[in-house]
Structures are given as C-alpha cells and as structure tokens.
C-alpha cells in the first residue's frame, strides 16, 4: 500500500541551497546519471529528511493498513478466503518491516518512528481511516486501494535511494497478489446472489472516491513535487498516476457489472482517456486533519498494541541481557 503524504509534506527547497555547493553538485550529477544513493553516501539534508518522512509514512501506512482488513480475518466466509486474508495482512506487516528497515538506514530508530506514529506527529495514508463494513470491503481494498498503490509503487522501484528502491522491488512483487485476490473476491460477489452483488456495489460506492484521493492533491495544488522529481524520489505527478489508475479501473468495474459512482464520468475520445467528475478535496483535507471516520480508532488500536506489548518486549530484552552476562562470566 502507499502513502499520499509525500507531496503535502514538502521537501524544503531552501535547505538544499545551504548545502556545500561542490558536494551538492556531485550528488546531483550522480542522480542525473541514475546512480543509486546508498546509506553512508553524502546526501543533502533535505533529501534525507524527505526520504525519512516519505518512507516512514509508507511504513506507517502498511502497519495501520493491517487494521481495516484485519477486521475481517475472524469473519472470512471460507477457510481458503481466511488463509488468503491472513497471508495478505501478514504481507502488509512484512512491507511495514521492510520499509522501517529502509528508513533506519537514514539514521533514525524504529522506536522514534513508532513514537512519531503513536503521538500523531507522523501521517499515514488516509484511506485507512475509512471503515470496512462488509466482506466486500476486503475485495474493494485489494482491487482499488492496492491497485492504486501499485500505480504509485512501480515507479518507486526506481527511486534514487538504494534501500528504498530495493524494498519497493520486493513489495511490488508481493503486491500483485494483493490486487488480484481483491478482484477475484469481487468477481465471486458480482457473480453471486443479489445480496452479494449489492454489497459489492456498495463497497465500490464507498471506496471509489477515497481511492482516487490516494494519489494526493491535484498537481496545481501540489507545488512541492518539483524537488522530489528532480532528485528522482518521485517519478510521476499525482494527476498522471491518478489518470492511469482511472483508465485501468473503469473497464475492470464494467467487467464486474458494477457501476462507478460518478455520474460525470465520461470517455474523452480525443485524449483517449476517461474524465472523472469533481473530487471533493474538502473530504480529503478533513480526513488528513484527523476527522475521518476511523482516525481515532486506528491510532488507538496501534497505541493499545504498543502499550500491551511493552512488558513482552521488556522481558525479551531482560532475558537477553541475563544471558549475555552469563555468557561473559
């Protein structure tokens, strides 16, 4: 999955101007030559901070993203679906782990990152602040949310920062399973009973617009993308990726016999692409500011897990310390 936050929380272009010009020139020449930047290499502070923010937001999104789908693990309607869902939610935990690991190469600890998430200082993808109300939501998340994530993640595999790029390659390989199981789940519902078709349509109605918002604000309102693009952290703009997603998804919905909940949606033959209606960015801003339907619940669930696991983590450390002492003695 993915975080939309990288544009709104901008790299600081001014800070880049204060770096040693010779080092900065050499750094940018390496970027231009498509060389990867590795953890111990010199990098501008703004590059480091942008990456820490972006990769950790991505990691937080994976971890928080376990919750809405995890909500259905105990209620999956067949043993095979239960297995698939557990494997999928487990993968998200794995993706979170890869990404925290990549972030830590930039000189920040897991504990600090978790603290930023739990205190509310760090953002995660707003999509996970929507509730999963029916089993069809599990399908819609796989199909739409993971579908949108893949659009964004494939270019990140070529990100200039080596550890992030490598983590993304690993993630993209696994993410394709996520999207396909979601579409397969929707297909079963769409070909099922009237009641099953109804929850499938309802899920599409609720997840369509938030999925489009996952790509972040329109380019016209996202003035900070430039430096991220120049440093090859980001390769495409929000609107480019959103358009690609729409053009892929509309025919998929048609195949399911489901209706995209957008009366203004039309095909523009001249441009060879779909045109969607107005996106309600005020809803997006509300959810980002913490007023989505589940913001509080999601964060509370993470805090509870962290707090109730504290004695376990401490015990493991204490045990290891005793043994280290015993071994040294």
């Amino acid at each position: 999955m993915y975080t939309q936050g990288l544009n709104e929380l901008a790299a600081r272009p001014l800070a880049a101007m204060q770096e040693d010009p010779a080092l900065l020139r050499r750094f940018e020449a390496r970027i231009d030559a498509e060389e990867k930047i590795e953890p111990k290499d010199w990098m501008p502070d703004a590059y480091r901070q942008t990456l820490i923010r972006q990769i950790s937001q991505h990691a937080h999104s994976e971890i928080v993203g376990m919750l809405p789908e995890g909500n259905w693990i105990t209620r999956a309607p067949s043993l095979l679906r239960k297995s698939i869902l557990i494997a999928k939610v487990q993968d998200e935990g794995g993706h979170g782990a890869y990404l925290y690991s990549a972030t830590e190469t930039l000189g920040i600890s897991r504990a600090e990152l978790i603290e930023q998430l739990l205190s509310g200082a760090a953002k995660y993808s707003s999509i996970f602040n929507y509730p999963t109300l029916t089993w069809a939501d599990v399908g819609a998340i796989g199909w739409l949310v993971d579908g949108a994530a893949i659009m964004n993640q494939i270019p990140l595999c070529r990100c200039s920062y080596g550890p992030y790029s490598r983590a993304m390659i690993r993630i993209c390989k696994e993410e394709s399973f996520h999207q396909r199981q979601g579409y397969d789940l929707m297909l079963k519902l769409a070909r099922g009973s009237a009641a099953q078709r109804a929850i499938a349509q309802d899920a599409l109605n609720r997840w369509w617009w938030p999925s489009l918002m996952m790509f972040g604000p329109p380019d016209t309102a996202s003035p900070h993308t430039a430096l991220s693009v120049r440093w090859k952290i980001k390769r495409f703009t929000n609107d480019e990726l959103r358009q690609k997603f729409v053009d892929f998804t509309v025919p998929q919905a048609r195949f399911l016999g489901l209706e995209i909940p957008d009366p203004a949606l039309r095909w523009d033959a001249e441009r060879g692409q779909h045109v969607v209606g107005e996106i309600d960015w005020s809803e997006f801003q509300d959810v980002v500011r913490g007023n989505g339907p589940c913001n509080r619940d999601r964060l509370q669930a993470r805090r509870d897990a962290h707090e109730s696991g504290r004695w376990v983590r401490e015990a493991a450390l204490a045990h290891a310390a005793k043994h280290a002492r015993a071994a040294a003695a």
Partner: peptide, 10 residues
C-alpha cells in the same frame, strides 16, 4: 507514553 528501547537491529 515514553519510548521503549528498541530491540537491537540485526
């Protein structure tokens, strides 16, 4: 909520 010490990194 004070930060827990991390488990060591491997």
């Amino acid at each position: 909520m004070h930060p827990n010490p991390d488990w060591p990194l491997y």
